[in-house]
Computed example of a mutant assay.
Amino acid sequence: MIRIGGVVRVARVLTAATALAVVAVSAAACGDGGEAAVSTAAAASGPSEAGLRAAAEEWSKAIAEGDYAAAYGFRSARCRLTIGQDAYVEELSQRYAGRDLAGAEPEITVAVTGETGQVSVRYTDERAGEDDTAPATWKFVDGSWRYDTC
């Protein structure tokens, strides 16, 4: 009888621990500062050109839609130290004010060497000539491509 009670108690403890782990993981995903926006599909292929292109397309789509907070989610930890999300959103709001970036697909060029990539994004709206088309460095970190040009 005591043995059965002990097994029941162990099962209850394990169930409670599992439930807490699920809650902790869910909370971490909700409070990640935008990282949840980064596609897991883009990372599934590892540090490949296809994965980098998918991440760059998601990033440029966020920019085109004016979702600068989502775009911030693609920044590397190193780049997040240089500017906070609010300042980043304000900077991009000013940079892209009055532009219709969602009207046409941007031209995206990618190249990968190891876990480092180079991405060029050229928007095709009327003011595209104002953009800096120099390649931006991206890094493959912890299973995700991160914008690393700070």
Score class of each variant (00 low, 15 high):
104 A>G: 05
7 V>H: 04
1 M>L: 13
23 V>K: 04
24 A>N: 07
28 A>H: 15
96 Y>I: 02
67 D>S: 11
9 R>P: 02
25 V>C: 02
29 A>E: 11
108 I>S: 03
74 F>R: 02
134 A>C: 08
65 E>H: 10
142 D>T: 14
59 W>P: 05
21 A>C: 12
94 Q>N: 06
90 E>A: 15
72 Y>L: 03
133 T>K: 01
22 V>P: 05
26 S>Q: 13
41 A>L: 13
72 Y>I: 04
56 A>Q: 06
27 A>T: 14
98 G>I: 08
73 G>D: 03
60 S>F: 07
24 A>S: 07
90 E>V: 13
4 I>M: 10
38 V>S: 01
66 G>A: 01
16 A>F: 08
77 A>T: 09
34 G>F: 01
81 L>E: 12
111 A>D: 10
135 P>F: 01
25 V>G: 02
49 E>R: 13
76 S>R: 01
103 G>C: 06
121 V>D: 12
45 S>Q: 07
137 T>F: 02
143 G>Q: 09
140 F>I: 09
139 K>I: 15
9 R>S: 06
31 G>P: 03
40 T>H: 09
101 L>Y: 00
103 G>A: 10
13 V>W: 14
40 T>M: 09
13 V>S: 11
139 K>R: 13
115 E>K: 11
132 D>R: 07
121 V>M: 12
67 D>W: 11
19 A>F: 04
17 A>W: 05
41 A>T: 14
34 G>S: 08
84 G>T: 05
113 T>K: 06
94 Q>Y: 10
46 G>N: 03
129 G>V: 09
2 I>M: 14
69 A>G: 08
19 A>Y: 05
36 A>N: 05
132 D>W: 03
35 E>M: 15
109 T>R: 13
72 Y>E: 02
134 A>N: 14
53 R>D: 14
64 A>T: 03
26 S>R: 14
71 A>C: 01
57 E>V: 14
38 V>F: 06
99 R>Q: 01
132 D>H: 03
117 G>I: 02
61 K>G: 10
137 T>M: 03
1 M>V: 15
66 G>K: 07
83 I>L: 13
143 G>A: 10
91 E>W: 15
2 I>P: 05
37 A>D: 02
11 A>F: 14
89 V>S: 00
83 I>P: 12
72 Y>Q: 04
131 D>T: 08
69 A>R: 06
96 Y>G: 00
3 R>I: 13
11 A>I: 09
20 L>H: 01
33 G>W: 07
68 Y>F: 13
65 E>W: 09
99 R>K: 00
100 D>P: 02
64 A>W: 07
76 S>L: 03
44 A>F: 07
149 T>E: 13
89 V>W: 01
144 S>P: 06
69 A>Q: 06
44 A>N: 04
123 Y>D: 00
138 W>T: 00
122 R>C: 04
80 R>C: 04
140 F>W: 06
134 A>M: 12
48 S>Q: 11
11 A>T: 11
84 G>I: 04
94 Q>C: 02
140 F>C: 05
23 V>R: 03
66 G>C: 04
141 V>T: 13
3 R>G: 13
3 R>L: 15
109 T>E: 09
19 A>N: 08
125 D>P: 03
36 A>K: 10
